[in-house]
């Protein structure tokens, strides 16, 4: 488990001091895929880089499995880093070394014996599906292949934690999906904790178990991905997941009857609620906007409908909806 307490990071430049993180408290469980999202400059990279001390925290503490990483000296820090893999947006492979040599790098610097290195690299090449590319140079690989090398390299020393800073941001959607499923597979197979920074909502939806939202250096929300995506509480998260407060701009002039927002989660999303409503209460339901998202195996529907008909019928209808285990918000 990773425990981050009151983490503050201030960058001191000649002209000014920039507070990138402000008293962040966070716990990340073993074996989970934890997402961190936030706008550009929110402090995501600073946060993840404090975890392996590529950046020195200004204040606060970070414990990994009960070990305070702030108290480590240089040698201890290097030993700890060998157990924390990291992958990057621009892959950061050694251009002068082959795929094989790139993956060998962390093993070489850890002094692993040559025969073990060879065995380990072949395992890793198999795991990331690049056995046939082992003698290629990075410049001969596609972006997705480069990131696979990056992943193999990060896993070489059998880390317990993998840090990923925008690892799919330079890839096309299809390649992104492949890399994500590789990460998910690794997570399940090795029970590896993965911390993923991204500004791509799809990445969070696709593979994260829990997510934290950062805004201007402050942690504004942490929770299960399904909860955060269905019921975001902060303004910034709502913007991220595409749920706006109040009535969307384009239907503000809707004048007939009442406007309600219905949130479906899980099974309820598959039930014919609207058609039952229409039949039972003799009201017309006018779908004004809506979307359905699939997160892991959950379905989250978000629907804004206009109800037209006799006022008392409408009230009854709204009352009935509330009893269906749906989250209802009357907008107008």
């Amino acid at each position: 488990m990773i425990q981050i307490k009151n983490l503050t990071k201030i960058y001191q430049t000649k002209k000014e001091s920039i507070t990138a993180l402000r008293g962040v408290n966070l716990e990340i469980n073993d074996g989970e895929i934890f997402g961190i999202m936030g706008l550009s400059g929110a402090g995501k990279s600073s946060l993840i880089r404090c975890i392996n001390r590529l950046e020195e925290p200004t204040e606060g503490s970070i414990e990994i499995n009960g070990h305070d990483i702030m108290s480590l000296n240089h040698d201890e820090l290097r030993e700890m880093r060998k157990k924390i893999g990291m992958i990057f947006q621009h892959f950061n492979l050694l251009s002068s070394k082959t795929v094989y040599e790139n993956i060998a790098f962390p093993l070489n610097i850890s002094g692993v014996p040559a025969n073990e290195i060879d065995k380990r690299i072949n395992e890793l090449l198999g795991m990331v599906g690049l056995a046939d590319k082992k003698d290629s140079y990075p410049s001969q690989l596609s972006g997705g292949q480069k990131q696979r090398v990056g992943i193999a390299r990060a896993l070489a020393n059998r880390p317990t934690l993998l840090l990923s800073d925008e690892a799919t941001s330079a890839l096309d959607p299809q390649t992104t999906a492949q890399i994500l499923s590789l990460l998910k597979e690794i997570n399940r197979r090795l029970n590896l904790t993965i911390i993923i920074i991204t500004h791509q909502m799809d990445v969070i939806r696709e593979i994260c178990d829990r997510v934290a939202v950062l805004n201007s250096g402050e942690l504004v929300e942490v929770g299960n991905v399904v909860d955060i995506f269905s019921q975001p509480s902060s303004q910034i998260t709502k913007k991220f997941v595409g749920i706006e407060d109040g009535i969307p701009e384009d239907i503000i002039d809707y004048e007939n009857g009442r406007v309600i927002r219905i949130l479906f989660i899980g099974r309820s999303a598959r039930e014919p609620v609207i058609s039952r409503l229409v039949k039972t209460f003799d009201v017309d339901a006018n779908i004004l906007s809506g979307n359905i998202q699939h997160i892991h195996s959950e379905t989250i529907g978000n629907l804004i409908i206009g109800l037209e008909g006799k006022p008392d019928k409408i009230e009854d209808a709204i009352g009935w909806l509330k009893n269906q285990g749906l989250k209802i918000e009357v907008l107008k």
């Binding site: 290097r78 950061n92 050694l94 790098f105 070489n108 610097i109 850890s110």
Partner: peptide, 24 residues
């Protein structure tokens, strides 16, 4: 970025000089 990746893998300054800076 490459130097940073090496740091993240626990390379010493000497290892970075001989295995990263010079070959790269």
């Amino acid at each position: 970025g490459v130097i940073e990746a090496s740091l993240s893998m626990g390379a010493t300054p000497f290892q970075i000089i001989t295995r990263v800076l010079i070959p790269e």
